[in-house]
Design a protein around this nucleic acid. Structure first.
Lengths: 132, 132
DNA sequence: GACATTGGTCTCAAATAGAGACCAATGATC
DNA sequence: GATCATTGGTCTCTATTTGAGACCAATGTC
C-alpha cells in the first residue's frame, strides 16, 4: 500500500540480487541523471525545444562545459534529441525524445514534493543551526 | 494535463522569478539530494531503521566517508533521524523522519520509471556505440 | 573596420570524492 | 591471556570532477 513499504521491499530485493551498477536500473540511471544538472536540463526542455545558448541563459550557473557534457549524456541515453542546422554560425536545437518526455511524470512528482516540503526542510536546517 | 506541459510551465515560471538557489526549492533540494548517494540511502532506510554498518554493507561501494557525510546532510535537512546508543562499542541507528517518509512516494515514481525504461536506455546507448 | 553571435573545445585551477590507516573499548576465540 | 574482530566514525593523501575563462571561424551589424 504505502510507497515507503513498496520502496523498502524493492530495496531488499536489489540487495538479494547483488545490486551492482550493470544490472540494477536504479543504480545505473541514478548515477547518470542523478547529478546536479541533468534533471534541471530535462525540466528546461519540458516546455519545448531550445537552442544551446537559450539553455545556457536559462540555467544561470551551469558552465558551457557541463552543459555540453550533460546534453551529450542525455542524448546518449536516448532522452534528448540533438538537431544541428549547418548554417554559419551553427544552430543546434535540443528537444526531448518520447523517452525523455516519459520522464516528465516522475520528475514532476519530485518537483512537487520539493515545492511542498521546502519550508519543512528550511525549518529543520534552522533548528539545527540554532542547536550548534 | 500532461506532466510534460505542467513541468514546462513550472520551469518558465522559475525563470521569470530569477530562479536562484536560495529561493527555488527545486534548485535547492536538487543540489542536496540530487547526488549519487542520497536517494539510495533514503531507499535503504525506506524498509525500516538500520545501523551505520548495516547501511555500509547494503550500499556496497559507498565509502564510509561519503556515507557519514550523506547521512549528516539528510539529518540536517530533517529527512533522517539519528539515534545514538552510548554503549561500547557505540550503536547508532538511522531512520526516516515523517518528512523522509513523505519522500518515498516521489522516489518510488523515479524508481519505477527507471525499472520500466532501463531497457530503452540501454538500447539507445548500444545504438550510439555502434554508430561511433 | 570593430564588435557581437553561434556552439562548442581546451587548459588550468579549485573543489569534491574515494581508499585506506587509525582509534578505544569490549567480547569472542584460541 | 594474547589476538582478533566489531562499533561508528575521523584523518590524510590521492584521484577524479567541476568550474572559469580564453579561444575558434565565419557571418551579420553598426
Amino acid at each position: 500500500m504505502d510507497a515507503r513499504v513498496a520502496l523498502g521491499a524493492k530495496f531488499e530485493n536489489w540487495l538479494a540480487l547483488g545490486f551492482d551498477d550493470a544490472r540494477c536500473p536504479v543504480r545505473n540511471l541514478l548515477d547518470q541523471i542523478g547529478d546536479r544538472w541533468s534533471m534541471l536540463v530535462l525540466a528546461a526542455l519540458a516546455g519545448g525545444a531550445k537552442r544551446f545558448s537559450t539553455l545556457a541563459r536559462a540555467l544561470p550557473d551551469i558552465s558551457k562545459r557541463m552543459l555540453t557534457q550533460t546534453l551529450r549524456r542525455l542524448e546518449a541515453d536516448g532522452l534528448v534529441h540533438r538537431d544541428v542546422q549547418p548554417t554559419v554560425p551553427p544552430s543546434v536545437t535540443y528537444s526531448l525524445t518520447s523517452l525523455g518526455e516519459s520522464f516528465a511524470a516522475p520528475l514532476l512528482g519530485l518537483v512537487e514534493w520539493a515545492e511542498a516540503n521546502f519550508a519543512a526542510v528550511l525549518e529543520a536546517r534552522a533548528r539545527r543551526a540554532q542547536a550548534a
